[in-house]
């Protein structure tokens, strides 16, 4: 009599309401909870496993979790936030294929995760490289999987991203939004961890010969956003992403034809076709630096361009120096 047994889980009340449990929902979704917010169910789940049957229970809860996830997908009974962020989909579908790449292919090592606060708004600023934005996705995964508070990194993307079909859709569902002051401030002031790659296409599409040389840091808009919301800036240095697709040329005509900011030519792409899209297995290090506080500046500091420029330079210099230090210490590109 399956129906009789599942009654406590199937409570109609929590299903309809489902408060915005942004952080807990995807994690508890791995359990057998029926709805993403069924706190009453959790203790029951944990109480049931008898000693010695853990493996069996684990399999059962996994199946139940996967089925509950499928049901919510079919009935549309899930929550997205104002930006279109779908936490459950991000955890179960979007980030899942990146995990083997993270662990086995790039063997990513993180340092200084403790510099990211457990709660509250913070702005993570990182160097951008690697032809396609693999570095930003890996940083998101690093913080979601390995930070003790399992925070989602909400990244700010170029408008080009949101013009593209599918890419734009997945970016929104993954929690990212357009890099503009209103969105950055909205996320920061609602206590989210925001990621920004201020070099943009200049950083990601630079030739291999200029690897690890930071490009211009936009117009410092990210600093102004942090100042206005009084949130700390966390400099983040990523080593290894430069070598995954070394750009040896840029087919500008081709780029113009497809409307892209650049068209990369690497030793393997486009010569080997789809095989050329396999990234080189470089060894990565992601180091999160000490937060730079912005709450000590006076009111209206964001409107002082000189201060904004200085702070932008300070962040840029910190990342550049960290990159040099990490590069000197690195044994080789691949190990």
């Amino acid at each position: 009599m399956p129906d009789a047994r599942v009654i406590p889980i199937k409570g109609k009340e929590p299903k309809k309401k489902k408060p915005a449990t942004k952080k807990s929902a995807p994690r508890s979704g791995a359990r057998a909870s029926r709805s993403s917010a069924a706190p009453a169910v959790e203790p029951q789940d944990e109480a049931t496993p008898l000693p010695g049957t853990e493996e069996h229970v684990d399999w059962d809860t996994r199946v139940a979790g996967a089925l509950a996830f499928l049901r919510r997908r079919i009935t549309g009974e899930y929550q997205v936030d104002d930006f279109g962020f779908d936490p459950e989909l991000t955890d179960r579908i979007l980030l899942a294929p990146l995990r083997p790449l993270y662990k086995k292919w790039f063997r990513i090592e993180t340092r200084g995760l403790e510099n990211i606060p457990d709660t509250g708004g913070a702005l993570l600023v990182a160097n951008h490289s690697g032809t396609v934005a693999v570095d930003s996705m890996m940083t998101q995964l690093a913080i979601w999987d390995h930070h003790p508070a399992h925070r989602h990194l909400r990244m700010l993307g170029a408008d080009f991203v949101f013009q593209l079909p599918l890419v734009g859709e997945l970016a929104r569902k993954g929690g990212h939004t357009l890099a503009c002051a209103p969105d950055a401030e909205r996320l920061l002031s609602s206590g989210e961890l925001v990621g920004v790659w201020p070099e943009g296409f200049k950083g990601i599409g630079k030739p291999f010969s200029e690897r690890y040389k930071l490009q211009r840091f936009g117009r410092g808009g990210f600093v102004a956003a942090a100042l206005r919301t009084k949130t700390p800036i966390i400099p983040c240095s990523i080593v290894g992403a430069e070598e995954i697709y070394p750009i040896i040329g840029n087919a500008k005509l081709m780029a113009r034809l497809v409307g892209a900011p650049y068209f990369p030519i690497t030793p393997t792409f486009p010569w080997l076709g789809p095989l050329g899209m396999v990234p080189l297995p470089s060894k990565w290090i992601i180091e999160f630096g000490e937060p730079i506080r912005t709450d000590e500046f006076p009111e209206g500091a964001a409107d002082d361009p000189m201060l904004v420029f200085d702070l932008t330079d300070q962040v840029r210099e910190t990342i550049q120096q960290t990159l040099y230090r990490l590069l000197v210490a690195r044994r080789s590109v691949f190990f």
Partner: peptide
């Protein structure tokens, strides 16, 4: 139904 089929019992953990 799928759940009971796959896990050999009625509900999830209950």
């Amino acid at each position: 139904q799928l759940l009971s089929l796959l896990t050999g019992k009625g509900g999830a953990g209950a």
